[in-house]
Structures are given as structure tokens and as C-alpha cells.
Design a protein around this nucleic acid. Structure first.
Lengths: 248, 248
DNA sequence: AATGGGAGTTGCAAAATATGCAACATCTGA
DNA sequence: TCAGATGTTGCATATTTTGCAACTCCCATT
């Protein structure tokens, strides 16, 4: 649509593979080197590229600034939406997005089950800390002192016969979560529902939010639920990438 | 130089402050909205911007990719050079750049003192772990198990009367380094030289390298050396930013 | 020191490209 | 259904980009 802009962006992409000379770059976009030079100078004036001594151009610092600004701007909810919606529409189960705020875990988004049986939960509502998979994911990422503080205020009411009942068992569970990279709620909250959750990460690898899938036991037994883990983890990774996370 | 490119880059910069509508963006660059639309579409085709539902454009994921590629491409030595050269030329003292590689600390760059007395050191040479400021910086960032492993193979030969002589004292020193954000070598290596060092960090806050300034005691006493800490830390931060680090 | 080659830079004229316009399309809310 | 706001397209115009060729600068080689 805009030729010169298109060429310039192609140059930037090319520079991503390493520093290049003026002639190399001219070859890539197939124009005269004077044309390339003028494009590079404009890019340079916006700090998109910089000269690397003589004879070489490379990506400039504006990219870092922009990427970081974009990250601040971008909120998890919106960035994760396509991946979560996809998971929800493919499997038809309830998908929740939750985030940690100041000692609490809050549901910030929800994609309804396509089945009859629906979960009682609402955006904005707090998730119980001791018996939900999302809370386990989010608390597992806290620093030791922050976790201790939260733990000090936690209660462990028995809700089902699987409910984790005390700090020691809960800490051990968090260790498993960290080791596995996912969390489960094996009917610890309600007898008839179980749930798996995975972390959505940001550019620095920090956990921004947790995504979970909740399924009534009548539809899928525990083993069947766990078989969806790779799918859930892939969903979480796709959402993470949208939030600036770099896999591996 | 290239008008349309310049306008497009201005748009990208503008979008960094948050999602904008077509009309807002047209206003910023002062052209007809159809022109803006065409620029945005080209940017969109390169994933530099993306449509945020309707009515809004925001920065796209290409920025993340490019920023990360730029980081991999960019090596510390080259990225840190301007800042280090500046420090060296302003103060005239020896500046070293060192990095941690597989249990060892290696000098990867050096800017010579402008004074008569020069340090015996060479690029590519290993720095002693127990008595140099750069090693303290780099080891202080290791994970606990990695540090233990290095510590197991460390020796603590007495080189001066200030040399740290055992693992316990060394670990305590590393705690101080972490707390302070800088390290010193208070004549622990050679009687007549002392030294301060600071970390150069990458995009995820990890320590990529350490920069140090070494000064003969006859030129500057210990207090005088420490008075240069703010300058050294500013230098390290400038180099860090070049490596993708985001302050605060 | 002179020479030659490679890389970068500039002015200019030609022409391809980007632009504004106005008409049209689409969506939202009354 | 309509009004208004926002987004989109075709087209003629002229502005902007382009390639060219000449020139400079820097380095390496003789």
C-alpha cells in the first residue's frame, strides 16, 4: 500500500537477523543504494536503526522503548482473549482468567461452558486461595516473604474431602505446581467439578495471570481432564507470547 | 528525508502512548485520514501495529520479536562500549568489562588508564574469583546451587592483608554486594590498587557482565574511590539500557 | 606519495507513488 | 428507519521518491 514504508519495514526486519551493510540491504529490497540510504536515515532519525561504526547498520534502541511501552499498555485480559476464546470454543468448557492483586486472586475474565452445567463464578469475584487451581498458579510465583504474608492470613475451610487443609500441605502443593508448570483442583472446591490451570507470563518471565479450565466430573473424569493439559499449556503459552513472553 | 516513512514512524511512536483512533492519528501527523489508513495498513501487514477491535489501533507483536532479536544479536561488549569509553576518558582510570562463563570470570574488554601506572591484566584472561570486584558482582547473581558449585572449587590464597580468606566471609561479602548493588576490591588483590564494580543488566534484569574501575591508591584513597560510585553506577546503567534493560 | 577501489553522499530530472477529495460503505444508537 | 460518525475506495493530481551519475572520503596497496 505504501511502497517506501513497506521497503523500510522490510529493512528493519532484515536487520533483525544481524548488522548489514548498505549494499546488502539495497539488495534485499531491490533498489538503488541511495534510496536505501535515505530510508535508513529516516529510520535512524527515529532511532529504529543505528549505525554500527562504519559499513554496518543495526536495529536501534527505539525498539526496546516501544516494546516496553507496548507491554505496559497492553493488558493481559485483552492480549489473552484470542487464545482463551479459541480454547473455549474448541473444547466447550468453562475458561477462567484470574490475576493476583494485593493478597487476593480475582477472576478477570470468563468464557462460558457450552454445556448445560455452568459454574458459579463471576468476573471481579475473589477466588478462594486454598482450593482453586488459578490461585495455586498465582501464589506459586510469589516471593517467599510475600507468600508468607498471604499464608498468614489464609484460612483452610474443608469444602470437599480433597480440600487441602493447612499451610504445610499447601506449600508442598505449590512446590508441585512450580515443578510441573501447571496446577490442578482435584475437586477440592466443589465435589462435582475439577479444574486445571496454567500461568500466563510476561516479557521477563513473571506470571501475569492464570488461565484455568473447569469441567464437571460427569463430563470428564480426572484422567480425561489431565489429557487436556498440553492444550491448556499451549493456550497459556500463546497468550504469554501476546504479552511479550519469549518461549525458551 | 522520506516523508511517508517519517509519518509512519511518528504514528508508531504515538501509538506507544496507548491505543488511538484513526482520526486521532491523522491529527498527529496532519494528513487526510485516508492517507493515515494506508500507512496503518502497511504497518499492520508487517505486524508493527494491530487493530484493537474497531476504532483503535495499537502496537503490534513485531515490536516484541524485533526487540528480542535485537537483544540476541547485540553483544555486551559492543553495546557497552560507548558508556565505558566515556567513563574511561572522563576519569582516566582503567576500566574493565568482565563476564561469567562456566565457573570462570573473564575479562572481555579493557580501557587503559591514562596515568603512568597501568594494571597487569589482559582481555581473555581469568580474573581471580575471591579478590576482584567484577567476580563478586558476577557470582552474586548466580543461583544458589550454581554458586555452591563454584564455591566448592574456589581457593582463597592470601594476596594482601585484606584478602577474603574463606567461603563464609565470601558469602557474607556477596550478600553485601547484592544489598548495595555494587562491589569493591579494597586492596584485596594487590596492595597498591583498589577497585569498584557494578553490574550490567539485560532485558530481564539478569546480570550480563560487570564493569569495574581500578585505581592505584597513590592516586586516590579509598574514600575518593567510593566517591566515584554514582558515576560508575550511571555508566553501568547506561550500558544496561543499551543491552535492553529497563530501569526501575 | 600516488593510485585504485569500495563505500557513502548529493543534486537533479523523470516518473512512479502518495495524497486529498468526494462518494460510498458500514456501524451505532435513537 | 434514520442520522451521524467512522471507515474505505477510485481517481486525478502533483508531490515525493527514485535512479542516475558525479563526487567525496577513506583505506589499502604499490
Amino acid at each position: 500500500m505504501s511502497q517506501s514504508l513497506d521497503r523500510a519495514l522490510t529493512l528493519v526486519n532484515q536487520l533483525a537477523t544481524g548488522p548489514k551493510t548498505l549494499d546488502e540491504l539495497s539488495g534485499v529490497i531491490g533498489v538503488h543504494k541511495s534510496t536505501t540510504l535515505r530510508l535508513l536515515r529516516t529510520l535512524e532519525s527515529h532511532r529504529f536503526v543505528q549505525r554500527d561504526g562504519v559499513h554496518h547498520y543495526r536495529l536501534g534502541t527505539a525498539l526496546f522503548d516501544l516494546a516496553n511501552l507496548a507491554l505496559e499498555e497492553r493488558d493481559v485480559r485483552r492480549a489473552a482473549e484470542p487464545a482463551l476464546r479459541d480454547l473455549n470454543s474448541r473444547l466447550g468448557h468453562t475458561v477462567h482468567l484470574a490475576s493476583y492483586e494485593d493478597g487476593e486472586v480475582i477472576y478477570i475474565d470468563k468464557y462460558e461452558s457450552r454445556h448445560q452445567m455452568r459454574m458459579y463464578s463471576r468476573i471481579g469475584r475473589r477466588a478462594p486461595l486454598h482450593c482453586t487451581a488459578v490461585a495455586k498458579i498465582l501464589l506459586a510465583d510469589l516471593s517467599a516473604p510475600a507468600l508468607q504474608k498471604v499464608l498468614a492470613g489464609m484460612e483452610f475451610p474443608r469444602l470437599t474431602e480433597n480440600t487441602i487443609l493447612g499451610p504445610a500441605a499447601y506449600l508442598a502443593e505449590l512446590d508441585r505446581v512450580r515443578a510441573n508448570g501447571y496446577a490442578v483442583d482435584n475437586s477440592e472446591h466443589e465435589d462435582f467439578i475439577h479444574c486445571i490451570a496454567a500461568p500466563i507470563k510476561g516479557a521477563r518471565g513473571e506470571v501475569l495471570a492464570a488461565v484455568s479450565m473447569s469441567v464437571p466430573k460427569v463430563l470428564l473424569d480426572y484422567e480425561g481432564l489431565l489429557s487436556h493439559l498440553p492444550d491448556l499449556l499451549a493456550t497459556a503459552e500463546a497468550a504469554s507470547v501476546e504479552c511479550g513472553y519469549v518461549p525458551r
